[in-house]
Write a protein that binds this DNA or RNA. Structure first.
Length: 648
RNA sequence: GCCCGAGUAGCUCAGCUGGUCAGAGCAACCGCCUUGUAAGCGGUAGGUCGUGGGUUCGACUCCCACCUCGGGCUCCA
């Protein structure tokens, strides 16, 4: 046996180490700083503990906390400390699984006698975790045979189940399982790797308690899950918690109440919103602008009813594939079932089919703000973003097969262009393929359609992400994902190619050759749901809508009663110019009225006093800007008009 | 749908183990104040404590059911 081994580093340089050297030795050999930062190592593509002896010829990278892999290990190890703390504080607790997840980790437990965790428990658990971390306990890996593992976890049914069900191939095919022990006797079943010792952890916070099914199975036992977040430094942790606070402040459900935009009256039912006047203004402008752009882009507007006989959705296939998502039928006219519509497409198809179509009619682009109703499971309803009744800005483009690629490209351009006009400008595109279970049509048809969509997306040179099995039952789709002001991504517009529905409804057109041909159908929604898009914009802007969308654009505040007449004349002038302006009289001090206007997030507050009445000016207090005195009214009107026109 | 948590005036919330616990601030309304850029002063009104049952001499407080809201229910030790 040679007395040394050769290791290749990520930069392709090599290093000689004594035989038997571990990943930790390698880190130490490279540098003090790296040795101190090292959490685990990546050896030939897989992550291992630092204590792992290296093989000659291995390609090794030392993983530090500020990498994705590093954070994942930190989070995973922190979840172990969570389990250790819970087992110490709650004798008899059973522990199940505790992986790292995006931004954090969780661990599932079952407490004796059906006990549950409360928020107060989190504080004591967190304190115990900090003790364990302060003790700097080593994570010591060992391996043992499966039956030995079963013995170690004699009173831990979930761990036993994991061992029993573990696929032999996943434990290196040798029937062993790996364990990690900490110094006070805590032992967990874990594939690893872990940080060398608990002292490497600490920038974490426990967040919430939730129920979760064992193995995600609704029929299985319900466990108590504790969620936490963990980071490489207190600074990163703080930044993450701050981001969460920011998101909470922007929550559209909260802003909807504060700004008097919409509500969900209990009397109406879960997931069913009503829009108040201020929300109504924003929504109407959103819709009007959309209509205007659709008209310019060659769409024709149609309308369809909210309910229809079952027959229509039988033909479309919705009742076969989608019945769970539909409201139950109403039986009318002596035995005929009527359904609330969950989608608009079948109606648009009937409009297409209402007369014989020629290739000269194509592409036919039908557009509707169609309100649909979907019976979402009660646990998934969420504000305006997941509602049971909502309006789609739904369009269906009927065209020849040859026109499809061009129409898809135009639709994608149109969608991106319009999203930018609403203030979103950071996108990527997702391509969703055939669902594993619910799908109609042959694989060949799907592959062909997917290929067309892929080409269209590639032509736009946009970042493309594959979403396996995420398509609708009738066809694949491209969806545009937008990142908002604080970096969250939202699925926005979808463009779906559909060969199925035209077949099911026997659609046809007469081609130049005089023969009948099946058209292709493109489903396309930009907002997806007007309500949801409203929520996204509300959160994106944190309630501070740009002037063109703001419910009130200008508030005029007279300094004293005797400036009322002048102020009222200004409001009239603004109204005449097509702006939304109001006036708040001097019943309260100016400072108080300014404050209220600011809390209402109005784009402009105008203060008018003696000087302004004399000179025909206003004092302009713009949202997020400096106060400017003595601006002429004409000047202000020009500025606001320009701003509204430019959609900024 | 299932689990956990929550539901007290329009909003935000206080109210310990059942017995003056039905309260505060903001908002609303009425006065006074007449004000130059983020909270002037005083007063009034407002809740069958989510709904319906039950236990009890007595329930916002305990039990059951239902409704609504929030978080979670894929990420394999």
């Amino acid at each position: 046996m040679a007395d040394h081994i050769t290791i290749t580093l990520p930069d392709d340089s090599t290093r000689e180490l004594p035989t038997g050297a571990t990943a930790a030795d390698l880190a130490a050999a490279i540098g003090k700083r790296l040795a101190a930062d090292a959490l685990v190592a990546e050896v030939d593509g897989s992550l291992v503990d630092l204590s792992t002896p290296l093989e000659d010829g291995a390609r090794v990278a030392i993983v530090t906390p500020t990498t994705d892999d590093g954070r994942e290990v930190l989070r995973h190890s922190t979840s172990h400390v969570l389990a250790q703390a819970v087992l110490a504080l709650f004798p008899g607790a059973k522990f199940a699984i505790g992986p790292a997840i995006e931004n954090g980790f969780y661990y599932d437990f079952e407490l004796p006698d059906g006990r549950t965790f409360s928020e107060d428990d989190l504080a004591s658990i967190e304190a115990k975790m900090r003790e364990i971390i302060a003790e700097d306990q080593a994570f010591v890996r060992s391996e043992c045979a499966m039956d030995e593992g079963l013995a170690v976890f004699a009173d831990q049914p979930y761990k036993r189940e994991i061992i029993e069900k573990v696929d032999a191939s996943e434990v290196a095919g040798d029937g062993t399982v790996s364990l990690y022990r900490n110094s006070d006797g805590f032992v967990d079943l874990c594939r690893g790797p872990h940080v060398p010792s608990t002292g490497r952890l600490g920038s974490f916070a426990l967040q919430k308690v939730a129920g979760a099914y064992w193995r995600g199975n609704e029929k299985g036992p319900m466990l108590q899950r504790i969620y936490g977040t963990a980071w490489e430094s207190d600074k990163a942790l703080k930044a993450h918690l701050h981001q969460l606070e920011e998101a909470a402040k922007r929550d559209h459900r909260k802003l909807g109440v504060e700004l008097d935009l919409f509500s969900f009256p209990d009397e109406v039912g879960s997931g069913l919103a009503v829009f108040h006047p201020k929300g109504g203004i924003v929504r109407r402008i959103m819709e009007d602008y959309s209509r205007q752009r659709h008209e310019q882009a060659g769409y024709e507007f149609v309308y369809s009813p909210h309910i229809t006989k079952a027959n229509l959705f039988e033909t479309s296939g919705h009742l076969d594939w989608y019945a769970d998502g539909m409201y139950p039928p109403m039986e009318l006219d002596g035995g005929t079932d009527y359904y609330l519509k969950p989608m608009n497409c079948p109606f648009h198809i009937l409009i297409y089919r209402s007369r014989q179509r020629s290739y000269r009619d194509l592409p036919l682009r039908l557009f509707e703000f169609g309100t649909v109703y979907r019976y979402e499971k009660s646990g998934v309803v969420h504000g305006l973003t997941r509602a049971r009744g909502f309006s789609q800005d739904d369009a269906h483009i009927f065209c020849t097969k040859e026109q499809a690629a061009d129409e898809l490209g135009r639709a994608l351009d149109f969608v991106l262009d319009l999203l930018r006009d609403y203030g979103l400008d950071d996108f990527y595109v997702e391509l969703s393929t055939k669902p594993a279970e619910k799908a109609v049509g042959s694989d060949e048809e799907w592959d062909e359609a997917i290929e067309v969509l892929r080409q269209v997306a590639l032509a736009k040179e946009m970042e493309l992400v594959l979403d396996e099995g995420g398509g609708a039952f009738y066809g694949p789709k491209i969806s545009v994902q937008a990142r908002d002001a604080i970096g969250r991504t939202w699925q926005m517009s979808t463009i779906q190619l559909d060969f199925q529905l035209p077949q099911r409804f026997d659609l046809e057109y007469i081609g130049p050759d005089g023969d009948r041909h099946p058209p292709v159908m493109i489903h396309r929604a930009l907002f997806g749901s007007v309500e949801r898009f409203f929520a996204v914009l509300l959160e994106h802007y944190a309630g501070a809508f740009p002037a063109w969308l703001a419910p009130v654009q200008v508030r005029v505040l007279p300094v004293r009663d005797d400036h009322d007449v002048y102020a009222a004349r200004l409001v009239d002038r603004f109204a005449a110019e097509g702006f939304r302006a109001d006036l708040v009289r001097a019943d309260e001090p100016l400072g108080a009225r300014i404050r209220k206007a600011k809390l209402d997030k109005l784009p402009y507050v105008l203060v008018v006093g003696d000087e302004d009445v004399e000179q025909g000016t206003v004092g302009v207090n713009p949202r997020g800007g400096e106060v400017e005195r003595g601006v002429t009214v004409d000047d202000f009107v020009d500025r606001l008009a320009a701003e509204v026109l430019a959609h900024t």
